[in-house]
Design a protein around this nucleic acid. Structure first.
Lengths: 207, 207
DNA sequence: CCACAACTTGCGTGTCACGCATATAGTGCG
DNA sequence: CGCACTATATGCGTGACACGCAAGTTGTGG
């Protein structure tokens, strides 16, 4: 049989992987950003219904397991930009792709807060975000017909985009912020791409 | 006596801190990006002339010790931008500040390669770079007379700048690159700030 | 010169990542 | 359907690590 593009083994693997990372994130949220040390590997494994040794076959650290969802998200970034219509201007394509990728569904505040404001998770979170940069840069290079080997523009823009996403996340998490994440995201990404009318935006500060 | 702005204690602390991080980076470079696991805490401590327990009083992980210099560099970023002349346009001020900060002296290729292309160090390296973002954002906000609480522009720009620095580092490390780091850095940072003449740069791809 | 504070060190503990060997479950073929 | 084969799950053992604690050592300030 054909297992619609995935055999039983791969689906089981995927399922355990998700069970582990989901359990890890849930337990981490329960303990809060200051009690991460209390989340034992044994607990994660038990909550996911696997042995601790198996947990370690999928992830080599708790941080990696907790941030796995963010990493997966980042892996889809390149594809998200590539699937925008070819004629669309770069800025609109990027904004649309990122908003679609990061607001479907609206992210879980507790989860995002966990991975973005826990010092011990900071490195892994940044790693997760930075995973999007390579594919994004390639997609940007393809869209702008640029050579990524010579031109730094695609890579720099990709890094700026992930930076904007992080900033948007931090800002969205601030207490009492009524904006939807899509709105914040759009505001942040707009800062990356210069506005067309020079009378507003950051243009006035430049030489 | 006045210990020119620093106690004996503080100077000793600083000295051991530097001895440890320097030893850690040196040993890491000796083993190369693939042999990081062979760099034991005991070796670092011995090379620095302290006990393993003391090493742990200064750094809570090998990665932190190895990347300490990058982190220190990032901590100086805000000050570097603030010390530019007040009237200078933002883009020129940023470019000058960053180039001065990151090319005095010209960085050690082996060290930079170690912290930027070793998977186990990636998170800590990104953390080190991101440390510059907060102070940078504040300096940008001050220079552009912007409210960092409402406007995302300072934070997004700061993130874009650190992203550009990372991209410049990666590009500079590529084999057979004859450019000075200052040149690469300038090229990367130029991508962050829109060129004044719309006929070149990325403007053509925008709406 | 002395009392106090900061720093260093040794020891013990709990946790972790991972190699290795074994058991189990999915796969593809005759 | 049954059988060899491979991938995955698990148990166990090992080496390393981070860190709390308490004692010893070194700078500080009166």
């Amino acid at each position: 049989m054909n297992d619609d593009a995935m055999n039983l083994r791969a689906r089981n693997s995927q399922a355990t992987r998700e069970a582990i990372s989901h359990a890890a994130l849930r337990l981490a949220i329960e303990q809060g950003p200051n009690g991460l040390a209390l989340v034992r590997v044994h607990d994660i494994a038990t909550a996911a219904g696997v042995s601790p040794r198996t947990y370690n076959n999928y992830f080599s650290s708790r941080a990696e397991a907790i941030c796995a969802f963010q990493a997966d998200q980042s892996r889809r970034a390149g594809q998200a930009l590539r699937s925008r219509p070819a004629g669309e201007p770069l800025d609109q394509a990027v904004i649309a792709a990122v908003i679609e990728l990061y607001t479907d569904p609206e992210p879980d505040r507790a989860g995002l807060r966990m991975i973005m404001s826990t010092p011990e998770l900071e490195g892994e979170a940044l790693k997760a975000f930075s995973m999007a940069e390579g594919p994004l840069a390639e997609a940007i290079a393809a869209r702008t017909d640029t050579d990524p080997q010579r031109d730094l523009f695609p890579a720099v823009t990709a890094a700026a985009i992930t930076g904007a996403i992080r900033v948007a996340g931090r800002h969205w998490l601030e207490p009492g912020n009524p904006e939807s994440f899509a709105t914040t995201l759009r505001r942040a990404l707009t800062c990356v791409f210069p506005a067309e009318s020079p009378k507003e935006g950051k243009q006035q500060f430049l030489s």
